[in-house]
Amino acid sequence: MPVEVRKVLIPSFGGPQKIQIVNSTLPDPAPNHVQVKVLYSGFSGADINMRIGVYPLQRKAPLTPGYCFVGTVHALGPQSTRFAVGDLVACLSIYDAEATYSNQLEKHLIPVPKGLDPKIATTLILDWNTAYGMLKGTDWKGKKVFVHGMSGAVGYALMTLCLLEGAQVYGTASARNHQTIRDLGATPFVYTDKLWITYMKQIGGAQGVFDALGFESWDESYDILSPSGGTLYGYGGNLGTLKGEKPRSVIWPTLKLLGRNLMFWSRKSTKFWWIDRDWSLFLPNTQEVFALALQDKLKISIKRVFELDDVATAHREWTSLTGMGSVLVHVS
Rank of each mutant, 00 (worst) to 15 (best):
I120D: 00
L328H: 10
P118N: 11
W273F: 05
N177H: 09
F69E: 04
Q17M: 10
D309C: 11
Y95L: 15
M50C: 12
W279A: 15
I48G: 04
R176A: 13
G42D: 08
I52Y: 00
L328S: 13
A121F: 01
P78H: 14
K37G: 04
G205I: 10
S326I: 04
H315P: 05
V3D: 09
I19P: 05
S44Q: 12
R304M: 12
V311R: 08
I120G: 02
V38E: 09
H74D: 12
G42R: 12
Y132F: 15
T254G: 01
H330E: 08
M150R: 02
G204K: 05
R82C: 12
D87P: 14
G323L: 07
S12M: 13
I94L: 14
P111Q: 14
G185E: 07
P111C: 04
L135H: 02
K243Y: 07
V73P: 11
V329K: 06
P78I: 09
L109S: 07
Y233G: 01
T286Y: 01
G259D: 01
A99H: 10
T25A: 10
T64F: 03
F13L: 10
W196T: 01
S266A: 08
F13M: 10
E288D: 13
A212G: 09
G325A: 09
N261L: 02
Y132G: 06
H315G: 09
C68W: 06
T231G: 05
E106W: 05
A90R: 06
D183T: 12
K243D: 10
L57H: 11
A167P: 00
L292A: 14
P11F: 15
A173Q: 05
N103P: 08
V289Y: 14
